[in-house]
Protein backbone atom coordinates (compact mmCIF):
# COMPACT_ATOMS: atom_id res chain seq x y z
CA UNK A 1 0.00 0.00 0.00
CA UNK A 2 1.64 3.16 -1.22
CA UNK A 3 -0.85 5.57 0.32
CA UNK A 4 1.84 7.35 2.36
CA UNK A 5 4.16 7.71 -0.66
CA UNK A 6 1.26 8.91 -2.79
CA UNK A 7 0.23 11.42 -0.17
CA UNK A 8 3.76 12.81 -0.03
CA UNK A 9 3.95 13.11 -3.82
CA UNK A 10 0.48 14.63 -4.10
CA UNK A 11 1.31 17.37 -1.62
CA UNK A 12 5.00 18.06 -2.21
CA UNK A 13 5.65 17.29 -5.89
CA UNK A 14 5.57 20.35 -8.18
CA UNK A 15 4.18 19.88 -11.68
CA UNK A 16 1.64 21.39 -14.06
CA UNK A 17 -1.06 18.83 -13.23
CA UNK A 18 -0.92 20.04 -9.64
CA UNK A 19 -1.80 23.53 -10.86
CA UNK A 20 -5.03 22.24 -12.43
CA UNK A 21 -8.18 22.36 -10.35
CA UNK A 22 -9.44 19.15 -8.68
CA UNK A 23 -12.78 19.56 -10.45
CA UNK A 24 -11.12 19.71 -13.89
CA UNK A 25 -9.04 16.65 -13.05
CA UNK A 26 -12.12 14.72 -11.94
CA UNK A 27 -13.89 15.65 -15.18
CA UNK A 28 -10.77 14.63 -17.14
CA UNK A 29 -10.79 11.19 -15.46
CA UNK A 30 -14.50 10.71 -16.17
CA UNK A 31 -14.06 11.80 -19.80
CA UNK A 32 -11.03 9.53 -20.32
CA UNK A 33 -12.87 6.60 -18.70
CA UNK A 34 -15.90 7.17 -20.94
CA UNK A 35 -13.69 7.08 -24.05
CA UNK A 36 -11.70 4.03 -23.05
CA UNK A 37 -14.70 2.01 -21.88
CA UNK A 38 -16.60 2.62 -25.11
CA UNK A 39 -13.80 1.83 -27.53
CA UNK A 40 -13.16 -1.48 -29.20
CA UNK A 41 -9.97 -0.36 -30.86
CA UNK A 42 -6.76 -1.81 -29.48
CA UNK A 43 -4.75 0.82 -31.38
CA UNK A 44 -6.63 3.60 -29.59
CA UNK A 45 -6.02 1.96 -26.21
CA UNK A 46 -2.30 1.57 -26.84
CA UNK A 47 -2.16 5.17 -28.05
CA UNK A 48 -4.05 6.33 -24.95
CA UNK A 49 -1.71 4.38 -22.69
CA UNK A 50 1.34 6.00 -24.34
CA UNK A 51 -0.40 9.39 -24.09
CA UNK A 52 -1.00 8.90 -20.33
CA UNK A 53 2.60 7.80 -19.72
CA UNK A 54 3.64 10.89 -21.73
CA UNK A 55 1.48 13.09 -19.48
CA UNK A 56 3.10 11.46 -16.44
CA UNK A 57 6.57 12.12 -17.87
CA UNK A 58 5.83 15.77 -18.58
CA UNK A 59 4.82 16.00 -14.93
CA UNK A 60 8.07 14.31 -13.83
CA UNK A 61 6.12 11.63 -11.93
CA UNK A 62 8.25 8.80 -10.57
CA UNK A 63 7.52 5.92 -12.93
CA UNK A 64 8.93 3.54 -10.33
CA UNK A 65 6.01 4.41 -8.06
CA UNK A 66 3.48 5.01 -10.80
CA UNK A 67 3.77 1.94 -13.04
CA UNK A 68 3.80 -0.86 -10.39
CA UNK A 69 0.35 0.30 -9.27
CA UNK A 70 -0.98 -0.62 -12.70
CA UNK A 71 0.15 -4.22 -12.27
CA UNK A 72 -2.64 -5.11 -9.79
CA UNK A 73 -5.57 -4.29 -12.14
CA UNK A 74 -3.65 -5.91 -15.00
CA UNK A 75 -3.27 -9.09 -12.93
CA UNK A 76 -6.99 -9.28 -12.13
CA UNK A 77 -8.04 -8.34 -15.66
CA UNK A 78 -5.69 -11.06 -16.96
CA UNK A 79 -7.74 -13.72 -15.13
CA UNK A 80 -10.74 -12.59 -17.22
CA UNK A 81 -8.65 -12.18 -20.38
CA UNK A 82 -7.16 -15.69 -20.15
CA UNK A 83 -10.53 -17.24 -19.28
CA UNK A 84 -11.92 -15.68 -22.45
CA UNK A 85 -9.46 -17.57 -24.70
CA UNK A 86 -9.65 -14.83 -27.29
CA UNK A 87 -6.46 -12.81 -27.49
CA UNK A 88 -7.91 -9.77 -29.25
CA UNK A 89 -10.73 -9.19 -26.72
CA UNK A 90 -8.40 -10.32 -23.93
CA UNK A 91 -5.91 -7.60 -24.87
CA UNK A 92 -8.80 -5.11 -25.03
CA UNK A 93 -9.78 -6.03 -21.45
CA UNK A 94 -6.16 -5.73 -20.27
CA UNK A 95 -5.71 -2.43 -22.09
CA UNK A 96 -8.85 -0.95 -20.60
CA UNK A 97 -7.89 -1.99 -17.07
CA UNK A 98 -4.31 -0.73 -17.38
CA UNK A 99 -5.22 2.61 -18.99
CA UNK A 100 -8.01 3.31 -16.51
CA UNK A 101 -5.63 2.62 -13.62
CA UNK A 102 -2.92 4.82 -15.19
CA UNK A 103 -5.39 7.70 -15.48
CA UNK A 104 -6.78 7.43 -11.95
CA UNK A 105 -3.37 6.93 -10.31
CA UNK A 106 -1.86 9.87 -12.20
CA UNK A 107 -4.60 12.20 -10.99
CA UNK A 108 -4.39 10.87 -7.41
CA UNK A 109 -0.61 11.36 -7.43
CA UNK A 110 -0.95 15.02 -8.35
CA UNK A 111 -3.90 16.14 -6.22
CA UNK A 112 -3.80 16.89 -2.52
CA UNK A 113 -5.87 14.08 -0.91
CA UNK A 114 -7.83 16.59 1.14
CA UNK A 115 -9.15 18.07 -2.16
CA UNK A 116 -10.05 14.63 -3.55
CA UNK A 117 -11.86 13.66 -0.36
CA UNK A 118 -13.72 16.97 -0.53
CA UNK A 119 -14.87 16.19 -4.07
CA UNK A 120 -15.88 12.60 -3.28
CA UNK A 121 -17.86 13.55 -0.19
CA UNK A 122 -19.57 16.56 -1.83
CA UNK A 123 -22.74 14.76 -2.98
CA UNK A 124 -22.98 12.69 0.21
CA UNK A 125 -24.33 13.51 3.69
CA UNK A 126 -21.96 15.49 5.91
CA UNK A 127 -21.17 12.51 8.13
CA UNK A 128 -19.57 10.74 5.14
CA UNK A 129 -17.00 13.52 4.76
CA UNK A 130 -16.18 13.28 8.47
CA UNK A 131 -15.74 9.54 8.14
CA UNK A 132 -13.40 9.87 5.16
CA UNK A 133 -11.22 12.50 6.86
CA UNK A 134 -11.11 10.59 10.11
CA UNK A 135 -10.12 7.39 8.29
CA UNK A 136 -7.38 9.17 6.37
CA UNK A 137 -5.97 10.80 9.48
CA UNK A 138 -6.17 7.55 11.47
CA UNK A 139 -4.41 5.63 8.72
CA UNK A 140 -1.25 7.71 9.09
CA UNK A 141 -1.33 7.55 12.88
CA UNK A 142 -1.72 3.77 12.66
CA UNK A 143 0.90 3.34 9.98
CA UNK A 144 3.64 4.84 12.14
CA UNK A 145 2.78 2.59 15.09
CA UNK A 146 2.43 -0.42 12.77
CA UNK A 147 5.82 0.18 11.11
CA UNK A 148 7.48 0.39 14.54
CA UNK A 149 5.86 -2.87 15.64
CA UNK A 150 6.85 -4.63 12.40
CA UNK A 151 10.44 -3.38 12.73
CA UNK A 152 10.57 -4.70 16.31
CA UNK A 153 9.16 -8.02 15.14
CA UNK A 154 11.73 -8.31 12.35
CA UNK A 155 14.54 -7.60 14.80
CA UNK A 156 13.27 -10.29 17.14
CA UNK A 157 12.26 -12.99 14.66
CA UNK A 158 14.58 -12.23 11.73
CA UNK A 159 13.63 -12.78 8.09
CA UNK A 160 11.33 -15.76 7.76
CA UNK A 161 9.23 -17.44 5.15
CA UNK A 162 5.55 -18.27 5.28
CA UNK A 163 4.78 -20.43 8.30
CA UNK A 164 1.96 -20.90 10.77
CA UNK A 165 4.05 -19.27 13.48
CA UNK A 166 4.52 -16.21 11.25
CA UNK A 167 0.76 -16.01 10.56
CA UNK A 168 0.17 -16.24 14.31
CA UNK A 169 2.66 -13.45 15.01
CA UNK A 170 1.14 -11.26 12.29
CA UNK A 171 -2.37 -11.92 13.62
CA UNK A 172 -1.18 -10.65 17.00
CA UNK A 173 0.13 -7.54 15.24
CA UNK A 174 -3.30 -7.07 13.65
CA UNK A 175 -4.98 -7.54 17.02
CA UNK A 176 -2.64 -5.16 18.80
CA UNK A 177 -3.03 -2.55 16.03
CA UNK A 178 -6.79 -2.84 16.26
CA UNK A 179 -6.93 -2.51 20.03
CA UNK A 180 -4.50 0.43 20.03
CA UNK A 181 -6.41 2.10 17.23
CA UNK A 182 -9.71 1.61 19.03
CA UNK A 183 -8.32 3.22 22.17
CA UNK A 184 -6.90 6.08 20.15
CA UNK A 185 -10.08 6.65 18.13
CA UNK A 186 -12.22 8.10 20.89
CA UNK A 187 -9.53 10.59 21.97
CA UNK A 188 -8.75 11.62 18.40
CA UNK A 189 -12.41 12.13 17.58
CA UNK A 190 -12.95 14.26 20.68
CA UNK A 191 -9.92 16.31 19.65
CA UNK A 192 -11.26 16.83 16.14
CA UNK A 193 -14.70 17.72 17.52
CA UNK A 194 -13.05 20.36 19.71
CA UNK A 195 -11.47 21.75 16.57
CA UNK A 196 -14.91 21.96 14.96
CA UNK A 197 -15.39 18.70 13.03
CA UNK A 198 -19.10 18.01 12.64
CA UNK A 199 -20.01 21.17 14.51
CA UNK A 200 -20.30 23.75 11.80
CA UNK A 201 -16.78 23.38 10.43
CA UNK A 202 -17.30 22.95 6.71
CA UNK A 203 -15.04 20.78 4.60
CA UNK A 204 -13.32 23.20 2.22
CA UNK A 205 -14.03 22.38 -1.41
CA UNK A 206 -12.40 24.03 -4.38
CA UNK A 207 -14.85 24.46 -7.26
CA UNK A 208 -12.81 27.08 -9.13
CA UNK A 209 -11.44 26.38 -12.57
CA UNK A 210 -7.94 27.64 -13.45
CA UNK A 211 -6.02 28.56 -16.60
CA UNK A 212 -4.03 25.32 -16.45
CA UNK A 213 -7.32 23.41 -16.80
CA UNK A 214 -7.25 24.36 -20.49
CA UNK A 215 -4.30 21.97 -20.88
CA UNK A 216 -6.44 19.14 -19.53
CA UNK A 217 -9.28 20.19 -21.83
CA UNK A 218 -6.86 20.10 -24.78
CA UNK A 219 -5.67 16.63 -23.69
CA UNK A 220 -9.26 15.40 -23.47
CA UNK A 221 -10.05 16.81 -26.92
CA UNK A 222 -6.99 14.98 -28.32
CA UNK A 223 -8.25 11.74 -26.70
CA UNK A 224 -11.74 12.38 -28.11
CA UNK A 225 -10.36 12.92 -31.63
CA UNK A 226 -8.36 9.69 -31.31
CA UNK A 227 -11.47 7.83 -30.14
CA UNK A 228 -13.53 9.17 -33.04
CA UNK A 229 -11.06 8.15 -35.73
CA UNK A 230 -10.04 4.82 -34.16
Amino acid sequence: MNLATMDNLAVNHRCWLQRCSPLAKALFVLGALAFLLTTRSLTFLVGLMIFMVGLALTNRLALGVFLPLVLVPVFFASVFAISLRDWSVGLLVLGRAATAALTVVMVFMTTAPVRILGLISAPMPEVFGELMYFTYRSFFLLLESLNNTLAALRLRRGKERFSLSRVRAMAQVYGMTLVRAWDMAGRQYDLLRLRGLGQGLRISRDWHLRTWDLTLLAALICIGVGWYYA
Binding site: M1, L3, L131, F134, T135, Y136, S138, F139, L141, L142, L143, L146, N147, L150, E160, R161, F162, S163, R166, V167, M170, V173, Y174, T177, L178, A181, W182, M184, A185, Y189
Partner: peptide, 16 residues
Protein backbone atom coordinates in the same frame (compact mmCIF):
# COMPACT_ATOMS: atom_id res chain seq x y z
CA UNK B 1 -13.24 5.09 10.63
CA UNK B 2 -10.66 3.19 12.66
CA UNK B 3 -11.80 -0.15 11.27
CA UNK B 4 -11.47 1.26 7.74
CA UNK B 5 -8.00 2.60 8.60
CA UNK B 6 -7.03 -0.80 10.06
CA UNK B 7 -8.32 -2.45 6.86
CA UNK B 8 -6.04 -0.16 4.83
CA UNK B 9 -3.07 -0.57 7.17
CA UNK B 10 -3.60 -4.36 7.29
CA UNK B 11 -2.59 -4.49 3.62
CA UNK B 12 0.93 -3.47 4.74
CA UNK B 13 1.35 -6.46 7.04
CA UNK B 14 3.49 -9.08 5.29
CA UNK B 15 2.24 -12.65 5.67
CA UNK B 16 4.98 -14.24 3.57
Amino acid sequence: AIMAAVGLAAMNIPLG
